[in-house]
């Protein structure tokens, strides 16, 4: 009976096709249940990240978690940024950056052209809360106006450097907290990120009573605690920008504080990947 069945070439092909579909289905199910080549931990990585991790051969040793993998992958990407990659800043689509002159540097030099920037020289939390306006896409707008005008899916805040000299640290934290609340209220669906301050150069740090790395570390500690209290994520952008001592690389800066275009690109590459 079976012999007769398989002698019919049409039936044989039909069986082969069904078998192929079953195998494919099994492979798909296995993939989504951690039974395949990609384990469950890696599975949670976005496809874009996963592809890059596999392509670029980031080491996946025992005990390395997803976060660690992403950080390694992001750092590798930032150290040799591929500016021809059309997807390099995909994760910034629909994002808003709020910051000071350093963020303005990212706006001018990083090549990020799919996000908005609310940034300006000497910008600080107090000025933002008081409704200071800056040029955003050719229009003079306060942050409050901008948050009413557009919807963002991510908001990156990078402030604190110009507040290092404030006598009241509590006032800084309180104002920063108010800013986070305002952003969350105006953009309830947006993911809010607090960017820690990246260090100044060792030369600057040694010669400046305000803009030094001890003060930056103290500020970052306060920001980390605040972000925890406000239930928002903290991002440390410093790894691609610092030397082995943890200070801003000398080659990256002319004044020890601001970074040149090469390092603005590294900053953006790193940030885009650690905030996916």
């Amino acid at each position: 009976m079976l012999d007769v069945f398989f002698e019919n070439r049409f039936n044989a092909r039909y069986i082969m096709l069904i078998l192929l579909v079953v195998i494919l289905l099994f492979a798909v199910i296995a993939r989504y249940h951690g039974m395949g080549v990609v384990n469950q931990q890696e599975e949670q990585l976005p496809d874009f990240v996963m592809n890059k991790v596999l392509e670029e051969g980031v080491t996946k040793g025992a005990g390395t978690g997803i976060d660690s993998m992403i950080l390694k992958w992001a750092l590798a990407a930032a150290e040799h940024p591929d500016e021809s990659d059309a997807h390099r800043f995909d994760s910034f689509e629909g994002a808003l950056f709020v910051g000071d002159s350093r963020t303005e540097g990212m706006k001018f030099y990083s090549g990020v052209d799919n996000a908005d920037f609310f940034s300006g020289k000497s910008m600080n939390v107090s000025k933002v809360l008081k409704g200071e306006t800056v040029n955003v896409g050719g229009q003079e707008l306060s942050l409050q106006d901008l948050l009413k005008k557009k919807t963002y899916n991510k908001v990156y805040i990078s402030l604190g450097l110009n507040e290092l000299g404030w006598t009241s640290k509590d006032s800084f934290v309180e104002s920063y907290g108010t800013l986070i609340d305002q952003v969350k209220e105006a953009q309830p669906d947006a993911e809010v990120f607090v960017q820690l301050l990246f260090p100044v150069s060792s030369k600057k740090s040694a010669s400046d009573k305000v803009f030094n790395n001890a003060n930056i570390k103290a500020c970052n500690d306060r920001l980390t605690k605040l972000a925890e209290d406000k239930d928002v994520k903290v991002l440390d952008p410093s790894p691609p920008l610092v030397d082995t001592t943890g200070a801003l690389k000398m080659e990256a800066t002319s004044d020890g504080v601001h970074i040149n275009s090469d390092y603005c690109v590294k900053w953006a590459f790193y940030l885009a990947r650690i905030s996916m």
Binding site: F108, G138, T253, H258, I259
Partner: peptide
């Protein structure tokens, strides 16, 4: 710096500029 960013910052109608090039410093 990218010309479009400069036009927006300077408030210039870029469509009427035939060619431009702008250099900024790091902010320092």
């Amino acid at each position: 710096v990218d010309p479009q960013t400069v036009y927006e910052l300077y408030g210039i109608d870029g469509s009427k500029v035939s060619d431009s090039c702008t250099y900024f410093s790091t902010g320092a």
